[in-house]
Write a protein that binds this DNA or RNA. Sequence first.
DNA 1: ACGGTAACTTACCCTCGGGTCACTTTACGC
DNA 2: GCGTAAAGTGACCCGAGGGTAAGTTACCGT
Lengths: 202, 202
Amino acid sequence: MTESRAVGTKGMPREEREAQLVVAGTEEFGRAGYAGASMVEIARRVGVTKPLLYQYFGSKDGLYLACLHRAGDRLTEGVATTMAAGGEPERMPLKVLSAIFTTFDHDRYAWRLLRDETVPATGEIAAAAADYRRRLAAFALLGATQLMTARGLADPVDIEAIAQVWTGVVDSLISWWIDRPDEDAVAMTARCARIMEGLFGW
Amino acid sequence: MTESRAVGTKGMPREEREAQLVVAGTEEFGRAGYAGASMVEIARRVGVTKPLLYQYFGSKDGLYLACLHRAGDRLTEGVATTMAAGGEPERMPLKVLSAIFTTFDHDRYAWRLLRDETVPATGEIAAAAADYRRRLAAFALLGATQLMTARGLADPVDIEAIAQVWTGVVDSLISWWIDRPDEDAVAMTARCARIMEGLFGW
DNA sequence: ACGGTAACTTACCCTCGGGTCACTTTACGC
DNA sequence: GCGTAAAGTGACCCGAGGGTAAGTTACCGT
C-alpha cells in the first residue's frame, strides 16, 4: 500500500474489485458454464450489484474473456514450461499433471473455462477459447506422438484420439478434485503417480 | 400396420412423431446441453411446431426425461450384460467400450445426456440422471476394483478416482467419435484395442 | 467546508425462450 | 358428403436474465 491511490474513492479500488469479480466469475462460469451462469449472481457473490460489473467489464462476454485469459495464459504457460524441460515420454503426463494441479490449486474451476461447450459458437470468446484449446491440443499431440513412436506404433489418427482422451482425463481428474477440497496439489499428484504406477507400470 | 389406427388422423400417428421428437431432442440436448437447447429448435428439426411438442411431452423436462430414459436404459442394460459375462479384468474396458459403441452407433449424442451438468440441480431430471450415473459408477467401481486388486494395490479412494476417470475417458472417446461420423462401431472398437495394446500392453 | 471524482446503486428496458389458448386442417367411418 | 377426432398451428403471455440511464455515497485534496 505504499503508493497512494487516486483521489475520491468509496469502497474498494477498481483493480482489487475487478480481481474479486474475475475470481467469482471463474467459479460461477466453471460451475454452471457460460450459458448457465448469471451476471447478477456473480455480482452478488462479491457483494456488489450488476451495473458495477458492467461498468468494469462491459458485458458478459467481457467478463468471460477476462476469466478465460487469466486461466488460459497461466495454464499454457505452465504446460509449455513443463514440456520444454523434456524428459522420458512416460514421465511427461505426470509432470504436466503436477504443473496443472500446482497452478490451479486454489482456483480449480479455471480449467473448465477452456472446455466449456456452452460458449457461443462464434465471436471473440469462441476464437480465444479455440486458440487456447489448439495450443493445449498441440502439446497433447506432441506428448502422444513421443509416447507412441517410442513404442513403434504411430497411426496419426490413433495419436489424435489419444491426445483428445488425454485432455478428457485431465478434465475428469479436475472434476474429482473439485469435489475433494481437502486434497492439495501435492497429494493429488502423489495419487496420480500411484495410480499410473499401479495400472500401467509407468 | 395390421392394426388399424384410430379414426381421424392428419399427418403422422402420435407414436411415430414422438419417436422422431425424442431422436431430435437427444441430438439437440446432447449438443447444446439441457440449458442451451431450445424447444422450438427441436420442433423445427422434425418439421412441426412447439405446441405439438408440448402436447406430447408436457414440458421441456418431460421431453428431456423421455430422451434420458431411452439413453440410460439402453446403456445400463448393455453395460450390465457385458459386465455380467465376466472375463479377465484387463479385457473388460474394451468389452464395455465395444458394447457402448455398438449400442449408440446411430445415436452418438445419447451418452452425453447422462453427463449433462447444465441440468437443474433438483427435481425429477436430477433424480433420474443421478440414478443412472450411480449405476454406471457402480460398474466402473467394480471394474476398477477388479483391476487394482489383481495388481495388489487397493486404496479405496484411488479406486474411486480411477472409476471417475474411466467415465471421462468414455466421454472423450464419444466426443471424438461424434466428430468422425464415418468411423463405425467396429472400427472404433478396433482403434481402442490398438491404442490400449500400444500404450499399456493390455 | 467544499468541490471533484471514483465507487456504487435503484429502477428501468428488451429480448429470448418456456409455456398456453383458441383455432384450423386432414383423414377416416358411416 | 359429412360428423368426429386426432394432428397440427398462429398468436399470445410471462418470467428470467443481459444490458443501461441517471442518480447517490463516500473519500480525497485544497
